[in-house]
Design a protein around this nucleic acid. Structure first.
Lengths: 156, 156
DNA sequence: CTCGATGCAAAATTTTTGCAGTCCC
DNA sequence: GGGACTGCAAAAATTTTGCATCGAG
């Protein structure tokens, strides 16, 4: 998959605006992130980045992730495992909830627009500035044992 | 704080029903968990357990936690940090959301009954059996800089 | 050139596990 | 007395950090 020149420049502009340097490793990590269609881990990202620039090290990936998050180009998806997932913010829609399938290990993102209302309500009542919200449902596939797979979710 | 004999027996009955043994260490860990008024970590629990029985080891705490969770006597509260929090299930209320204060490091539990509806809706649409749900709001105290503390939340 | 950025390996953190000895039933 | 349970320490697994070197501007 080719990454559009436009989004590519978005990251470069972010780096420049922060007084940070545009390095081959940072660009490789960024492009690798956008080459992943689904959620990915830091380790996945290291592997993909090295396909573009084999000099990328694990440390640089971990140092680049906060930059990609701060620039809103990717977002963190923490579903309570030992490690975190990330995903490209291709289209920033409404708030999303995660449905985590315990059978097929997949994470499905579904729109949950009422989260915005919920955050505002909580913030109002408690005098808070909301930084982040998450709504997650972990579940088993009801049909798994019958059909042998839970790919019915993939039709979402 | 004295733990009621009744809840104490609940754990013993759970262990017996599972064919597990009632050991001094397990009871100390259980009582320590119920002596904590707030959320606690595995390390907190180790410290508290050792006040009751100094032979308790870290490994035994980690091995006892799943038992306490399975028996519904405590529940896990994962707010996305490197470690997990736990808390005694003194009164099993409706569904609860967590408000995590980024300033005072406290976690506030608030009722969010609509989570039950949400889980049912998702389960219905996707043919799932919901195992668990979480709704979390991380936020800053709006008045922190003015008042120097965010204890207004404590009045919840 | 200069100093921010990188790779490497060691450290840090939390949780898990193997094993020899312990003690509950 | 037998096997479940425990403590200890080492291992796992992911992320962070110190330091010498590299390279973007």
């Amino acid at each position: 998959m080719m990454i559009s020149e436009e989004i590519n420049n978005t990251f470069k502009e972010f780096l420049t605006s922060k007084g940070l340097r545009i390095t081959n490793q940072r660009m490789a990590i960024f492009e690798a992130a956008y080459s992943c269609a689904e959620h990915f881990t830091a380790e996945n990202l290291l592997d993909e980045s090295r396909k573009l620039d084999d000099s990328v090290s694990r440390a640089t990936v971990y140092r680049a992730l906060p930059l990609l998050i701060e620039s809103s180009l990717i977002r963190e998806v923490d579903v309570g495992k030992d490690f975190k997932y990330y995903m490209a913010n291709r289209d920033v829609k409404t708030f999303q909830a995660q449905v985590i399938c315990l059978d097929c290990e997949k994470i499905f993102e579904i729109d949950a627009p009422f989260m915005e209302w919920y955050g505002k309500t909580v913030a109002e009542k408690l005098s808070l500035d909301v930084e982040d919200q998450r709504l997650q449902v972990t579940a088993h596939c009801r049909n798994l044992k019958a059909s042998g797979s839970c790919n019915h979710l993939a039709t979402k």
